[in-house]
């Protein structure tokens, strides 16, 4: 629901409002993680580590629905639609460009809401584990979630054996998006 760039505002103010709109989105990913069966069985340390390394990637999946790849536009939850050039002024052109490509590939798979949610759970527990202590527990949780995702997708499309592998191929894409863009700068005014 991020109101970006009415013409009268300076790019600094635009940058601040864009930065602000990440905060609620991150909090929603934290709540989502806590609802994943088994996630809260992990140690608190490992929950925090997975969230720190996986949240950006989950956000990228969530934001896909805002992107209209054909027209290269982004529609925020408040209904405001922006073209890619107008958002380039925010200096996030390269991230947005990658997002259009990623959302086109993910969108073409035509996942249902619950399949997308289960995929996001897999994305989170598949995130970088360098800070994780009990790797075995995380791997077990990942295996369970991948099994659940596979059975949900194959039960609905018994004759389509390509969809599930195509979906898993999005995981490295997300890892690349994360490595390329999570160091984007945000700015917050301190009063």
């Amino acid at each position: 629901s991020c109101p970006v760039a009415p013409a009268s505002r300076s790019s600094q103010e635009v940058w601040e409002s864009f930065s602000q709109c990440f905060t609620p989105a991150v909090k929603e990913v934290v709540e989502f993680a806590k609802s994943i069966p088994g996630f809260q069985m992990l140690s608190q340390h490992d929950q925090v580590m997975l969230l720190k390394s996986g949240t950006f990637q989950v956000l990228m999946v969530r934001f896909c629905s805002l992107f209209e790849p054909k027209e290269r536009t982004v529609t925020f939850l408040n209904g405001q639609t922006y073209s890619l050039p107008s958002l380039r002024a925010l200096g996030m052109g390269s991230l947005l460009e990658s997002m259009f490509d990623f959302s086109e590939k993910l969108g073409s798979l035509g996942l249902e809401q619950d399949e997308m949610a289960l995929f996001m759970a897999v994305v989170l527990v598949s995130a970088d584990r360098s800070g994780v202590v009990e790797v075995g527990a995380v791997e077990q949780l990942q295996e369970n979630l991948i099994k659940a995702l596979r059975s949900l997708i194959t039960s609905r499309r018994p004759d389509d054996s390509t969809l599930f592998p195509k979906l898993l191929l999005r995981l490295p894409d997300l890892r690349t998006l994360n490595n390329q863009h999570s160091d984007k700068l945000l700015a917050f005014r301190i009063d």
């Binding site: 909090k27 929950q47 720190k52 984007k184 917050f188 009063d191």
Partner: peptide, 25 residues
Amino acid sequence: PKTHRVMTLADHISHIITQDFARNQ
């Protein structure tokens, strides 16, 4: 003049997560 805190997206995400877990301890 207004002062600004500039941080990366990744640091901003980490900050919110740390805050959330600290609050729920």
